[in-house]
Amino acid sequence: MHDLAPLTPLGAPAPHCDDIGPLRIAETPDRALASVSARLGQEAACKTALGALIGADAPDIARYTGGTPLNSFWIGPHSWMLEAPYAGHSDLAARAKARLGDCASVTDQSDAWARFDLTGEGIARVMERLCNLDLAAMAAGTARRSVVAHIGCHVIGHDSAHATLYGPRSSAQSLHQALIMAAKSVF
């Protein structure tokens, strides 16, 4: 095991967490990510193989599918993000590639994104200050690409009291500031 200590996207050894009113905004760095894109002509095979990998149907357009322990969400035509707990899956991309074989291109994205989880009441009221997604009407398991405070993000609605944002890691601080600002503006 190497001896380099990781930092979270916000630049600290431990994840940051804020409670503002009924809402909790938590930095969640313990997720491994790998992008999966179907090779040309292998779209159906890739989707089937991805489904087998996560133990459920591969998510359809703008959808998120939770599995155990692998989750996946749609990110583009014939493209998905695979998600798993980082502990035990730091080599998620390599393991996925081994399972998907030549039907997919797989890229490690674990360190490309900063993840924030919003839990509690009032998520939609906060997010309406930041992006044009209609979170109040978003069905559970929806995964959308949107611009949050001028930052391109993946927004996943789990239920009315839980949403996940994936924003670019380098902009974690700006995204975090925007979330805090919006929450304080509402609560």
Binding site: S35, R39, A112, R169, S170
Partner: peptide, 14 residues
């Protein structure tokens, strides 16, 4: 579109 090529940015990842 007939080429088998997949692209994704990894600027942030490394």
């Amino acid at each position: 579109p007939d080429m088998d090529v997949q692209l994704i940015s990894t600027t942030e990842a490394w």
